[in-house]
């Protein structure tokens, strides 16, 4: 479902003397439907960079990133938007929303953009928020005022609202208590069961052990040669 081949990435910092900084080279991995692959490696090794490249948020310098039939590395913006609509979900560590929008609608939005009617989308959003123990009295409020843990759970609810065939999870269990952590792990297992291919970053080793089928160490993709080689 997700297949990465010979992917490389470098940043050019034009405003700092056009410094060329290679951050990844020769990255390859694949995630099959129903499989969960965990990215590991020390901090700064490029786990988040890889994740962002699969999401289309960072441009690839070379290589292929197949998600379903779309090569994210060469796709047009419109193809990526189409992919994000119903092909690829992403639970990031940060909740970025329009202020003032009620939490219920924030979670329902991924369904709404796929054409699900408002009442059905809200019903699904309500089920997820209840499962993640967000008190119902908070649903009409904007999540921008919530605590970090609450925001994280809203973000997870939003990410799991639509049954994407491929999912990216960036630290989904960080800053959660034991009960909510268990709910999130259940959600992940359920997603795998329905056939979702999941690529995730989990610092929580117990969680990793519980849901990941394989681990990929991204340190192997760190460019070792001189900058010229990476470019």
């Amino acid at each position: 479902m997700i297949r990465i081949e010979n992917l490389s990435k470098s940043f050019t910092l034009h405003n700092q003397g056009a410094a060329l900084i290679p951050v990844m080279a020769g990255a390859s991995l694949h995630v099959a439907p129903g499989e969960c692959v965990g990215l590991v490696g020390q901090s700064g090794a490029g786990k988040s960079t890889l994740m962002r490249m699969v999401w289309g948020n960072y441009l690839a310098s070379a290589g292929r990133i197949m998600v379903g039939a779309t090569d994210v590395a060469s796709a047009t913006p419109r193809q990526i938007i189409a992919l994000r609509r119903d092909g690829l979900g992403y639970v990031s560590q940060f909740l970025r929303v329009v202020p003032r929008v009620p939490t219920l609608d924030v979670v329902a939005e991924p369904l709404r953009v796929c054409g699900v009617p408002q009442d059905k989308a809200r019903a699904q959003a309500a089920r997820l928020l209840a499962r993640l123990n967000i008190p119902e009295r908070l649903w009409p409020l904007s999540p921008t005022t919530f605590s970090g843990g609450e925001q994280q759970r809203v973000n997870i609810a939003r990410g799991f609202a639509y049954p994407y065939p491929a999912l990216l999870l960036d630290e989904p269990t960080a800053s959660l208590d034991a009960a909510n952590r268990a709910v999130v792990l259940d959600l992940i297992v359920e997603a795998k069961t329905r056939g979702a291919a999941i690529l995730g970053i989990f610092h929580d080793e117990a969680a990793r052990a519980q849901v990941c089928d394989r681990l990929v160490d991204v340190s192997a993709f760190t460019p070792k040669a001189a900058p010229e080689a990476a470019a």
Partner: peptide
């Protein structure tokens, strides 16, 4: 893509 242009 908007977020790509802003983030990378």
């Amino acid at each position: 893509l908007t977020d790509q242009v802003l983030d990378d």
